[in-house]
């Protein structure tokens, strides 16, 4: 198990990387011992670059990346402890998932590779199609095949770059459950996504990345606390907007209210109290509440707020 060792599974120390004149990531420092850590950022934030650096695919321009105490490029033993599930969607298309995962397992020196590959694919609900050619797979099956490759080697550090991309709701649920299980097993898992609630479903430990820099890190509630000073805008679609607005205006957790024809937009200081109140009011048919939509709770707004802050 990775987490038990003295060395962190993954450690970035003042890492910067330039692609020519373009900055990839800047002055990144963090470490992971074990468990699931979410790497959250918008497209282009540098998530995939971080994954490439962590896997040893590319080297930093400045700083150091160490996996279990060593740069990943330097040792095949260290790379044997890394399971990368990259964002790109390329395979040997003529091979079946079982043949490909077996091939990868044999390269890693896994004993009984064929049997191990079948077990891992079965764990990922691929047993019925694992002997078909990868070229005919859906996006979701291709994602699971990539993950199988990461799992079959028994890696202690798993780097999952956007693993939920292309999965249907059932597949997403299964993948989220699997990632949590891997974390519970003591593996160190770095999982990237640009969707906040996806990451939240997998872990409560986050690294927020923006324009190549770490904007915030820690537990989800800690980051939320940083955001609590900001008023959240919530749209309430309602049949009787004026009646609802009268109820909201007096509350201490509501900083202001805008009333329109069939909706109320509230600036909320304490989201918890507000949603408790609106749930109670929703039960009262006099107001006719139809929908509640947070207007700026999306990741872009969060980042915008953190950047300004």
């Amino acid at each position: 198990m990775s987490g038990a060792g003295l060395q962190p599974a993954l450690a970035f120390s003042r890492v910067s990387l330039w692609y020519g004149n373009v900055l990839g990531v800047s002055d990144i420092s963090f470490s992971i011992q074990s468990g699931v850590v979410g790497l959250l950022g918008m497209n282009g934030a540098g998530k995939s670059t971080m994954m490439k650096l962590a896997s040893g695919m590319i080297r930093p321009s400045i700083g150091s990346v160490e996996v279990f105490g060593k740069p990943p490029q330097e040792s095949t033993e260290i790379r044997n402890r890394i399971g990368l599930c990259p964002d790109m969607d390329r395979f040997y298309e003529r091979m079946s998932a079982h043949a490909w995962v077996t091939f990868m397992a044999r390269l890693a020196g896994v004993p009984s590779a064929k049997q191990k590959a079948a077990e891992v694919l079965d764990r990922l609900d691929m047993s019925d199609r694992m002997h078909k050619k990868i070229g005919g797979y859906s996006k979701g099956m291709r994602q699971r095949t990539k993950l199988a490759r990461a799992l079959v080697v028994g890696a202690d550090l798993l780097l999952l770059d956007e693993p939920l991309n292309g999965l249907d709701p059932i597949g997403r649920h299964a993948m989220i459950r699997l990632v949590r299980e891997l974390g519970d097993e003591g593996k160190a898992v770095l999982v990237s996504s640009h969707v906040l609630h996806e990451v939240e479903a997998m872990t409560d430990r986050l690294l927020l990345l923006h324009q190549g820099r770490i904007l915030a890190e820690g537990k989800v509630h800690e980051i939320r606390d940083q955001l609590s000073e900001r008023a959240l805008q919530v749209e309430v679609r309602v049949r009787e907007p004026r009646s609802l607005a009268r109820q909201l205006i007096g509350a201490t957790h509501v900083a202001g209210v805008d009333v329109e024809k069939d909706r109320v937009v509230a600036r909320v200081a304490d989201a918890g109290l507000f949603f408790d109140q609106i749930t109670d009011l929703g039960c009262d048919e006099r107001y006719g509440i139809e929908a509640i939509v947070p207007l700026d709770a999306d990741l872009e707004s969060v980042f915008g707020y953190l950047v300004r802050k």
Binding site: S55, G56, M57, P72, T76, E77, R79, N80, I82, L84, P86, M88, R90, F91, Y92, M104, L107, A108, G109, R149, V153
Partner: peptide, 12 residues
């Protein structure tokens, strides 16, 4: 085809 990624990031 970028399949090289699986080899260079593995223990190969």
């Amino acid at each position: 085809s970028r399949t090289l990624v699986y080899l260079i990031t593995g223990p190969v």
